[in-house]
Nucleic acid binder design. Sequence first.
DNA 1: AATAAATTTGACTCAAGGGTTAAATTTATA
DNA 2: TATAAATTTAACCCTTGAGTCAAATTTATT
Lengths: 204, 204
Amino acid sequence: MVYLIMDINVKEPFNRDRQFALKRQAVIRAAGLDFCKRGYHNTSMTDIASNLGLTKAALYYYVKNKDEVLFECHQQAYDAMDIILQKKWIGENGLQQLQDLYCDFVRMLTASGVSLLTDVNSLSELNKIKVLKRRGKIERKIIKLVKQGQSDGSIRAGDPRLHVFFFMGALNWLNAWYDNSGHFKGEDIAVHFATQMRLGIAAA
Amino acid sequence: MVYLIMDINVKEPFNRDRQFALKRQAVIRAAGLDFCKRGYHNTSMTDIASNLGLTKAALYYYVKNKDEVLFECHQQAYDAMDIILQKKWIGENGLQQLQDLYCDFVRMLTASGVSLLTDVNSLSELNKIKVLKRRGKIERKIIKLVKQGQSDGSIRAGDPRLHVFFFMGALNWLNAWYDNSGHFKGEDIAVHFATQMRLGIAAA
DNA sequence: AATAAATTTGACTCAAGGGTTAAATTTATA
DNA sequence: TATAAATTTAACCCTTGAGTCAAATTTATT
């Protein structure tokens, strides 16, 4: 029995489906980084492939088309954000919850290799709608959190949407300038940004 | 004498160079709006032309190529920012100067038809360098202002660059969601953003 | 070893769109 | 009115890059 289990675990890396999923994942991640750095339309499928030491046609074994790659990048970013959003921050006021949330957002974006892309307009109509719907959903949750903070007195008055648009802008801009190997450490940015975010909306 | 002056003024709209400049300007502006809304690569020269009721080849009477159009959009945005930066805010501390500056930035971006584009990577190498150089110059001026505010005690401690990256992100994101005919009035956004910016970095 | 499935490749097709050009038309000037 | 300059047009060329495909090669299974 034990042998069997160990056998499965040991064989895991040779599991074909798993290998496929991992490679596909690598393609998406590599593409996401390229899209961040150079932009979607300035990155060809050939570019992505050769960055991975592959040829273009090999990519198409793992993904349907370029649109799907961009879509997946968005999906994974929103998946990660959803996971963070599902976390329960009990016993704190709206402001504190928001700060923790925002801090986690920045941590995720700087650490995970997931990229929060801004080029929604390059998606196919259908995928664009899906992505905007998801973004809207997340945005609404955050706005709700702001309203909650305004109710419990931890967040100052002002249009909650503008509050959110402001600090979400900083987040969207992050991927454009952040560099893994650069001067700033992800955790430092996370703490700094979360603080600056909080002070911008905290009640007096 | 008066006649002559009037004559010149009256004829002004028929001045060829002036006409040309105005039309060229219209092309740049229209293109900038399109680039903002749909992205540089999702906007063809034909699109821009037909939005102006022209044909593609007519555009090429006013501009050299698409790269020049994108470059001009950037230039005009930075021209406008430079003008704002040259304003003298006497007798105020760094924080207050920064708030006024930021407020003017938002006003300019929402009112003038000038767009602060993020797609620097789509520029030709040469123009990209020029634009990044200008952006860097402006960024450094703002960072300097932050440092000044930290010296005079109006701005809290913390890496000045991160302070700036944060609220400049909000600014860069603005053009992506702001809509002339939308719910938010430019002036309201300007005041709101400037306040949120200030509170995020103000000394306790 | 033989067979089947997974993986990768080189060589191709095709459309989109940037940019050109010569000719037509409109507008200003002598 | 004649001429030159400004403006616009339709029809074209050409490169880039997405996506395909049949064949080759590598890896797993019987």
